[in-house]
């Protein structure tokens, strides 16, 4: 076949068996390359000719251990499959919210191939995992030619399918602060069909604080903006004022709904998303602070 033939969809295929190799290949191929982990979001785009990478760098040969504990953090290597997250006793014990959310990701086939690093990197604003990682106040460890750095989840998700990872970097680990016995969490979502991407989802972590009666709340909305949305202190203000009671929860839920400008799509209007935000924020908050 002549070089001029626009036979572009047949990409070069490269495998990486360690992160260093992946980073080297990425530098070599530049913008035309795509990293593939589970491939559950990327391959449909290639099949539908919506993405035509010049090269595919396959991360699957990278061997990773399961989740492990490291100084108060639950460390989940990026290539950990959703299935392994679900099966992990450490996740069940220290991060039940993640276990619940991962159980709602796709279906058994997606969970067998899909990886936590892939979900975080893909940064779908309706995805369960970005939402939970942000609510947990986790960190994303990325590695590039100049070494390793850790990005707080708060700064990681920028906009649709875009993260703070530089072009020459790859996500290698997700680190979540381990929840204590007194901590609460809440996760709720509405989907049009079971296990589909959420129309709206809300993840809440409530960390008890030794010095204060009111827990530290992190409330994240999914499906209502270009990225998972962490609610600011101004929105959570009723909690500070009223403490963890139903009135405060109602007010926060109302504030949350008022604060967003969601878009309409094939599954729901902006208005419906706003209403769901109020309901699900209330329900998740109530669950997190033990008033559910």
């Amino acid at each position: 076949m002549s070089a001029a033939a626009p036979n572009s969809s047949a990409f070069e295929y490269q495998t990486a068996d360690c992160w260093e190799e992946a980073i080297k290949l990425r530098a070599l191929w530049g913008e035309g390359a795509k990293l593939i982990a589970g491939g559950q979001s990327l391959v449909p785009m290639i099949n539908l000719r919506l993405a035509m990478p010049a090269a595919l760098i396959d991360l699957n040969p990278i061997v990773s251990s399961g989740p492990w504990l490291d100084q108060g953090e639950l460390v989940i290597p990026a290539m950990t499959r959703h299935r392994a997250v679900l099966d992990s006793p450490l996740v069940a014990t220290h991060f039940p919210m993640l276990a619940k959310a991962v159980g709602l990701v796709g279906n058994v086939r997606v969970r067998n191939r899909g990886t936590i690093g892939g979900s975080v990197s893909h940064a779908d604003p309706t995805g369960e995992i970005p939402c939970v990682v942000l609510a947990a106040g986790g960190r994303i460890v990325v590695q590039g030619p100049s070494g390793m750095r850790s990005v707080p989840a708060d700064d990681f998700f920028l906009t649709y399918l875009t993260t703070a990872t530089d072009l020459d970097e790859v996500v290698t680990e997700i680190r979540l602060p381990v929840a204590g016995d007194q901590d609460g969490w809440g996760f709720d979502e509405v989907t049009r069909r079971f296990s589909d991407f959420a129309t709206v989802e809300v993840a809440v972590s409530a960390r008890s604080r030794a010095s204060e009666e009111i827990p530290e709340l992190r409330v994240v909305l999914g499906g209502v903006a270009d990225r998972p949305l962490l609610l600011g202190e101004d929105i959570l203000e009723p909690f500070r004022r009223l403490g963890a009671d139903p009135q405060a929860i109602d007010e926060v839920a109302q504030n949350a709904a008022n604060s967003i400008s969601p878009e309409s799509d094939v599954h729901a209007s902006a208005d419906y998303r706003r209403r769901l935000t109020q309901v699900l924020t209330r329900r998740s908050l109530a669950q997190a602070v033990g008033l559910g």
Binding site: R193, F194, S195, D196, F197
Partner: peptide
Amino acid sequence: CPLDEGQAVSTLFANYLIPSSMD
């Protein structure tokens, strides 16, 4: 199958909601 001026809003099977075993 919502249409916008005759154009399918989505042609993805992911967006066409035939019931699953859980629905």
